[in-house]
Design a protein around this nucleic acid. Structure first.
Ligand SMILES: [Zn+2]
Ligand SMILES: [Zn+2]
Length: 657
DNA sequence: AGCACGCCGACT
DNA sequence: GTCGGCGTGCTC
């Protein structure tokens, strides 16, 4: 009996494949069950090869797919991703399989859901801008990147609906990527008010069966509209029409652990390989995207006007050096809050820190409460009367005396949302107060219930974190106050100016759109009212700020004008990380590159008892990055310092995690 | 990654 | 003497 030989990718942090044999030919992209040492693993067939007699090849135990789990196009994208991100191929394949297919399960058929996608809702008349954008979109159905640069309320979603409609007419599927799970429910609502059929969902909080059902229904074309987070970018499709990436600027598209990929960038690759259009939507496009528009790689479709004709609110800078600050809010702004409430209107307070106070520290020595397993600062939570680690959610009691110098001079410092809530409850007694942060929205539907209550249009104060800037609109807010951004301006790290501008414009775009609020106001409380980027933000024109940031990046040789990478080392010992990274640093120093930082501890320097350190490198071009990282990986393979650490690469990093 | 193998310290 | 701790190296 003739045997066939295959290279198989296994879910291991190893940059190679393993050879196995089988009695039949197997298509690439198929799952197989194989023996590996003393265990058994599910792997992916990469290619048929001729027998390598120098290896004692084992037999494949079972072929698990009748049709390959990865179509030849998805396969091509994953091979590309593994090379682009310099990540072990088996782990890349593994990360795009739903749980059910990661184990040695055969496929099973589930009942077909409602797949009649006839239009049931009423279609609104399109504005000229919308018509124009759609015309450009429709003029070809080959690969192209269309960027919908549309302010909040300009009708981006209606364009998505028309694109889906066009795809359905051609019996094609649409994939809509979103940065966060909690943006999915409202999109499902809008989509199912327009189309009759089932809307597929794919994200990490689903049960394995739910996830597999969507995977299968997408593969056989029963579900033609799919909304999903990152990992849905490699779903199988019977016939895909286009991909939409909503809020493309959102950094949540980048995975920050394991296989560190950008779902937005991978979506662009997928669209290119499938030869279909991709739409990137945002009111605040990323600097990279704006740069690609300037280079004519992407096509910009602008939606400037809000369809209800309302104007975006003005952004004012409030110099907080002027008055006394209590619990994070200046006295003058507190008066303004009181006035607004007295007029029966709503106030929104944005403070990007949850809990009561972000630090608990000693005034005598430099002791500061931190988590034993993460080494991050513990945050005081008033409701729990405990210190909480925001990374691992561990809770600690509150010591009365300093563990370091044993004096009783411990104190909280800094301002979290709970502290502002308590302060305003005392100061503005007549106002109803809603706090919207991770702690108040943990329960399912909690956030939707809160939003429904808030939008009933009564005088109220909303206090919240990032969450306020993503997806939800607050039309009755007449005054927004943005607090606590000075630490960001003071200690800029990755893309601070870009992130901050996007945040400010996103918050301001979501408020004050109801008819009875003519002059919504957004006030940024800052000690740096002369900061260049803040000044540029004042007329709410994001593109103007973006131009400034792009110029800075160009002058400072920062991405996208250079290509960046992080080499990460993880091990139980700090010294092992440092030894390896020092050797790596020396290696790269010899190459005379743009910039090298480190070795330094990662911002999450300790996780599950393992330390993490890194070096950050900027290359003058993408091709130089790939060439040098490949060479480095090959050479460093033999280093003895590597044996004591796990090393990983982060391409296009956007933090030091 | 996960597992076996082996070498060393400590405890019946 | 042997149990178990973890450091090392290998897995087609
Ligand atoms: Zn002390
Ligand atoms: Zn922790």
């Amino acid at each position: 009996m003739k045997n066939f030989y295959f290279n198989i990718a296994l879910p291991l942090p190893i940059r190679k494949t393993f050879q196995y044999s089988y009695s039949e030919k197997i298509k690439k992209g198929s799952r197989v069950f194989v023996p590996f040492g003393s265990r058994k693993l599910v792997g992916i067939v990469i290619e048929e090869v001729k027998e390598d007699k120098s290896i004692e090849t084992k037999n494949i135990i079972a072929l698990l797919d009748n049709l390959p789990s990865f179509s030849s196009k998805a396969f091509e994208c994953i091979i590309w991703a593994s090379k682009y991100y310099h990540h072990p191929i088996g782990e890349v394949f593994h990360s795009f399989l739903p749980n059910h297919l990661r184990k040695n399960n055969l496929h099973k058929d589930y009942a077909v859901s409602n797949n009649d996608y006839s239009i049931i809702g009423e279609k609104p008349k399109l504005t000229d801008e919308q018509n124009n954008a759609l015309k450009i979109y429709k003029n070809s159905s080959d690969f192209k990147v269309n960027v919908i640069n549309g302010v909040t309320g300009s009708g981006k979603t209606e364009i998505y609906l028309r694109i889906i409609e066009k795809n359905l007419e051609e019996d094609k599927s649409t994939l809509l990527l979103v940065p966060e799970i909690n943006l999915i429910p409202q999109l499902i609502k809008v989509f199912s008010e327009r189309f009759g059929g089932n809307i597929g969902v794919y994200h990490s909080k689903q049960t394995p069966i739910q996830k597999y059902k969507t995977w299968q229904a997408s593969a056989n074309g029963n579900i033609k509209i799919i909304i999903g987070t990152r990992s849905s970018v490699m779903l199988p499709f019977k016939k895909i029409g286009s991909i939409i990436v909503d809020e493309e600027h959102d950094e949540s598209y980048k995975q920050n652990e394991g296989f560190r990929y950008s779902a937005r960038d991978l979506a662009i690759k997928r669209a290119q390989v499938e030869n279909v259009p991709i739409i990137l939507g945002s009111a605040t496009p990323s600097i990279t995207t704006i740069d690609n528009i300037a280079k004519n790689k992407f096509i910009e479709l602008v939606l400037k006007k809000r369809f209800d004709g309302s104007n975006p609110p003005k952004i004012l800078l409030y110099d907080s050096n002027k008055t006394k600050i209590n619990n994070g809010i200046s006295e003058e702004l507190l008066e303004l809050i009181k006035e607004t409430i007295a007029q029966g209107k709503q106030v929104l307070i944005f403070n990007n820190r949850r809990g009561y106070a972000p630090f608990y520290q000693c005034l005598e020595c430099d002791w500061i409460a931190s988590c034993n397993s993460c080494e991050t600062n513990l945050v005081y939570h008033e409701d729990l009367k405990r210190l909480v680690c925001h990374r691992c959610e561990s809770k600690y009691g509150i010591p009365d005396n300093c563990p370091s110098c044993s004096k009783s001079s411990l104190n909280i410092s800094g301002v979290g949302t709970q502290r502002i809530e308590k302060y305003l409850q005392e100061e503005v007694k007549e106002a109803q107060i809603f706090r919207i942060d991770y702690d108040t929205t943990r329960k399912k539907d909690a956030i939707d219930d809160l939003i429904t209550e808030i939008n009933k249009d009564k005088a109220a104060i909303l206090i919240g974190t990032q969450m306020l800037s993503k997806g939800h609109d607050f039309p009755n807010v007449a005054l927004s106050i943005i607090l606590n951004i000075d630490t960001l301006i003071n200690n800029p790290d990755f893309n601070t100016a870009e992130k901050l501008s996007q945040l400010m414009v996103q918050v301001s775009g979501r408020v004050g759109r109801s008819r009875n609020i003519k002059d919504g106001k957004v006030i940024i409380q800052t000690r740096y009212p002369n900061d260049k980027n803040l000044l540029n933000l004042r007329d709410g024109n994001y593109m103007k700020v973006a131009k400034g940031i792009i110029n800075d990046r160009k002058n400072l040789n920062q991405p996208p004008y250079t290509a960046s990478a992080i080499i990460l080392a993880t091990s139980p010992k700090k010294e092992s990380n440092i030894a390896y990274l020092n050797e790596a640093r020396q290696y790269f120093d010899n190459l005379k590159l743009e910039t090298i930082y480190g070795p330094m501890p990662s911002q999450v320097s300790k996780l599950k008892g393992r330390y993490k350190h890194l070096i950050y490198i900027q290359f003058s071009s993408r091709s130089q990055l790939h060439k040098e990282i490949n060479k480095f990986l090959l050479i460093s393979e033999k280093w003895s310092t590597l044996k004591k650490v796990k090393a990983m690469i982060d391409i296009d990093p956007n933090n030091f995690y």
